[in-house]
């Protein structure tokens, strides 16, 4: 495991009403993907990792500093009225963030005039610009077009020294993922370091299952690697 911030989850249990989450594992620097069906407890786990909620039992050790989580609805993050003020409120260079988010022409616009995708882009860019030790991104690609999705993936890929946890159903926009975790019925399973998990991923997305079945498993989850695997399938046809 690379040097840097690290989180250890030892027999951690979180309860939310009748739902109980069990987690065990070590999360080190790199990009982690948490998958699982809706209601499996992915967001609850993200909240635990980001320090939003606390465990009821077990031990969670965090060796880094700041942690932040992008919520599924980026609208919750709004605390100002304009694009510029919102970028500023994250205590980062607002012009740089606004330009990176592709919203320079709208820098003085009211936030309510932004589309959902634009707002998500703005908040996501501001969060990544803070360069916190741990960033949890809950469905970061939802509402983003292809171009914006690629840009976000590039930004995440650059966070090699820090921890990035992606909770996502979409696998066509992902950056190079280092490790895959799966939530099943409230329990966290470590599927391992890439590319090993792709062949033993029981509930893998259809594309991965198809590539595995065709005998051309991808060597990673980034778009380029998925395209390469798909091309090999075509060649063998």
């Amino acid at each position: 495991m690379k040097d840097g911030p690290e989180m250890s989850l030892n027999n951690v249990i979180v309860r939310k009403g009748s739902f109980a989450l069990h987690a065990e594992g070590r999360i080190g620097p790199g990009v982690h993907l948490i998958t699982g069906v809706i209601g499996a407890g992915k967001t609850t786990l993200g909240e635990l990792i980001a320090g939003i909620i606390r465990q009821e039992r077990g031990n969670l050790v965090w060796t880094g500093n700041n942690r932040v989580m992008l919520m599924q609805d980026a609208g919750f993050h709004i605390s100002t009225t304009t694009v510029f003020k919102e970028a500023e409120s994250w205590k980062v260079d607002p012009d740089k963030v606004i330009s990176s988010a592709g919203l320079f022409e709208k820098r003085n616009s009211d936030l309510l005039q932004l589309s959902r995708g634009e707002l998500r882009r703005l908040v996501l860019t501001a969060i990544l610009a803070r360069n916190d030790d741990l960033v949890v991104l809950d469905e970061p690609f939802a509402g983003l077009d292809d171009k914006a999705g690629k840009w976000v993936s590039r930004q995440i890929s650059m966070r090699t020294e820090k921890i990035t946890v992606i909770i996502s159903h979409s696998i066509t926009m992902l950056p190079d993922v280092d490790r895959i975790w799966e939530m099943r019925d409230g329990k966290l399973y470590d599927l391992g370091i890439m590319p090993i998990p792709l062949t033993k991923w029981v509930r893998a997305p259809m594309l991965i299952r198809y590539l595995n079945k065709a005998g051309h498993p991808p060597s990673g989850l980034s778009r380029t690697l998925l395209e390469e695997a798909a091309c090999r399938t075509r060649e063998s046809d």
Binding site: A50, I52, V68, M69, M71, F76, H77, S79, S89, W90, K91
Partner: peptide
């Protein structure tokens, strides 16, 4: 929660 992440 979102505000607390910004320190607000």
């Amino acid at each position: 929660i979102a505000l607390s992440q910004k320190g607000e």
